[in-house]
């Protein structure tokens, strides 16, 4: 029997609210740390220096080729065997960041490669030094391409954090499981948790839309007045994109 009372009491349970905060916190911090690491890895994979290319390539291959769950257990439970003991949160963050950065580096790489070569040439011809070419011209355009997949990664990470419950991080899923043990209302408890996840991913979806509009400046379809002109320039723009 489904009990609405139990369901609503789970929804307002401070344990679950606390867990949801931990989930949001873990996701945000992991993402914030993984992104700069991903940019470094992406640069490393495009490096002129072979050993850097090999090491970063190996890292991405390893992280993407093994399950996060295995990585987490190795970091938290396995490493102490060789004298490296990490706290619960540190272990969880280490695993999430290392794993996520490997995936994000592919997004960063694709984003930078998507910017037409003519763009950086025009910037260089103006006299911009290399870092300005990257920051002023390449990065903003790469971001436009990167925001949708980065947003999806954030959404995915919100749910992937459930995995760190196995190394006893008290995020939303683990807190829910604790709460359920008081009355064994599994269905109501986990439905409430699922609703929390839905709320978080939905909210994130709104943030992502806003970000996409922000980085998409100059690319929106213009007012109908300019349609006619735009069609005339399409062949030229397509050429440029190649």
């Amino acid at each position: 029997m489904w009990s609405w009372d139990a369901f609503f009491s789970f929804l307002s349970n401070p344990q679950l609210i606390q867990g949801a905060w931990t989930t949001i916190w873990l996701t945000t911090v992991s993402m914030a740390l993984a992104l700069p690491l991903a940019v470094l890895v992406a640069l490393g994979r495009a490096s002129r220096i072979a050993p850097i290319r090999i090491v970063t390539g190996f890292y991405v291959w390893l992280m993407r080729g093994t399950p996060l769950l295995v990585q987490l257990v190795i970091i938290y439970t396995g490493l102490p065997q060789v004298g490296l003991r990490l706290g619960v949160i540190s272990a969880a963050l280490t695993g999430l960041v290392l794993n996520e950065a490997a995936y994000l580096s592919e997004i960063v790489r694709a984003g930078v490669l998507s910017v037409a070569r003519g763009q950086s040439e025009a910037a260089r011809a103006l006299g911009m030094p290399p870092w300005k070419v990257f920051r002023v011209v390449v990065m903003p355009q790469a971001l436009r391409v990167m925001v949708p997949p980065l947003g999806n990664s954030f959404n995915g990470l919100l749910k992937t954090t459930t995995l760190v419950s196995v190394i006893s991080v008290e995020e939303l899923l683990r807190r829910t499981q604790f709460a359920v043990q008081t009355n064994f209302r599994v269905l109501e408890g986990l439905t409430a948790a699922a609703l929390y996840y839905l709320a978080m991913t939905t909210l994130w979806g709104l943030v992502q839309r806003w970000l996409e509009v922000r980085v998409g400046r100059g690319h929106q379809t213009g007012p109908s007045r300019s349609r006619r002109i735009k069609r005339a320039t399409v062949p030229a723009l397509e050429l440029e994109a190649r």
């Binding site: 037409a116 003519g118 763009q119 040439e121 025009a122 910037a123 260089r124 011809a125 103006l126 006299g127 911009m128 030094p129 290399p130 011209v137 903003p140 355009q141 436009r144 980085v215 400046r217 100059g218 690319h219 030229a236 050429l239 440029e240």
Partner: peptide
């Protein structure tokens, strides 16, 4: 280095076949 060559390039302007305007700027 490229950084120094960038300074030298300020004396020369270039116009490309495909315009190469920055699409995210007015």
């Amino acid at each position: 280095r490229e950084r120094r060559i960038a300074v030298q390039r300020r004396r020369t302007g270039m116009v490309f076949q495909q315009f190469n305007l920055f699409p995210n700027m007015t």
